[in-house]
Design a protein around this nucleic acid. Structure first.
Lengths: 235, 235
DNA sequence: GCTCAAATGGAGGAGATTCCTCCGCATAGA
DNA sequence: TCTATGCGGAGGAATCTCCTCCATTTGAGC
């Protein structure tokens, strides 16, 4: 954790004043919330308002919308990677690690934010690297859980990712945030019970079985086979 | 099924010309799709375009946005009620009926449309009656499945409804509709396996246990206890 | 404390979106 | 054939969102 001038991006060369750093972080947090609630097209004025700063401050810190979204994504991917590797190291068995990671990821909000950013993000090397690291860490957990037989054999990493996307988006309706959070964790527990291997033989799952890589490729292309089968994985 | 001038609402007294009836149905279908994709605030121009009619035709058939939304909701609630009672009558056991209804409801899109309309609907007696009928029919299935022990004891009708809401919303990203549909059904199968009673004792579920009635009350109030527990059921 | 480069807020013009009426033309139905 | 009913889409009004500009405030080094 270097104390040198941050170089998160290529841009920020100058050292920021303390209040500017604080405002920058508030803006990132507000952006996360607003993107989850309103999508990637949310008015920037709203983000500034929610962060408690003027709109000019937002534009001073992030030259335009893509720059802001880029920083939000990088930040989240880093946290996700950290949670995933920690989970696998800290939990005694792989399924527990999977459950722990998913609950943490739910709180991070990554599975609500990242999908909303699809098609809006400038996919530069920095971002692709971060995404690869995060995907790899999560894949490791899924692979481990499958290897020790605790995860259903017909469940793919794509299923895990997409189910989390469904759980992470706040429910429409007047649920206060705390209720939404609790319901999401409750429903995650139910879903986890569906993911666990059972003694009785499983009925085969219908529908496309997608890997995590298929999902990553999705973020870059809109080309899908007509029949709805997963696209060819990239190499 | 009377052949008299339809009186779906209080308004349409005059018999519609054949092409007008056709356009009305196209508009309702397009409205369903667009509401699911873009929410209840979607531009009416887009709905008209998708239906293949001019914007004037939409305004001629539905005086304003609330009127259109009202008709969409009524239509869906009716279909849902029908599917629910059919399922319970036609399937040999209650869990199969539940599974069948949920798959059908997914295809209807009711759980994607109705939540998007919360707060936008004029809740008149006609609509409340339709909603009550639909809720009752679904509750009957859930109660039957719980009674015969096939549904987990700690799962409420609210859980079932909310899980379907999560599954019914199209995933963000460039999934073509057919893929979205298949993924939703696949994930519903996984969720159903989580809802089924298991031999092994279940870990207790955290989070608020809500009934279907709690959800209905939600559509009418934004008042929630501070601690995130479900609101008092109305009587 | 003093000083000043750095940071701040919010007004407001430009441009984009959306609503919804109006009116001349087309067509279903008898 | 005839006409009441229905149709499409242009376009003015109202609203929303972006993003710059500048007078004022503040952090931090001396």
């Amino acid at each position: 954790m270097p104390s040198e001038p941050r170089a998160t991006n290529a841009a920020p060369l100058r050292r920021l004043r303390a209040d500017a750093v604080r405002n920058r972080e508030r803006l990132l947090a507000a952006a996360r919330d607003v993107i989850v609630e309103q999508g990637a097209d949310a008015p920037l004025d709203e983000i500034a308002r929610r962060a408690g700063v003027g709109i000019a401050t937002l534009y001073r810190r992030f030259p335009d919308r893509p720059a802001l979204l880029h920083e939000v994504a990088l930040d989240l991917l880093g946290r996700s990677t950290h949670e995933a590797s920690t989970a696998l190291a800290a939990e005694p068995d792989a399924f527990a690690a999977l459950a722990r990671y998913l609950h943490r990821a739910l709180d991070l909000g990554i599975s609500a934010v990242m999908p909303a950013l699809i098609g809006q993000l400038r996919l530069d090397e920095e971002l692709l690297t971060a995404r690869r690291a995060s995907a790899k860490a999560v894949e490791a957990i899924v692979a481990a859980a499958r290897a020790d037989g605790s995860l259903r054999g017909d469940v793919t990493s794509g299923d895990v990712g997409l189910l989390l996307v469904r759980l992470a988006r706040p429910l429409p309706g007047p649920f206060p945030p705390v209720v939404n959070r609790r319901l999401a964790h409750r429903h995650l527990d139910l879903v986890l019970d569906g993911l666990r291997s059972r003694a009785a033989p499983e009925a085969p799952l219908a529908g496309p079985a997608m890997t995590f890589d298929d999902l990553a490729a999705m973020a870059e292309t809109a080309a899908w086979p007509r029949d709805g089968s997963p696209p060819e994985p990239r190499t």
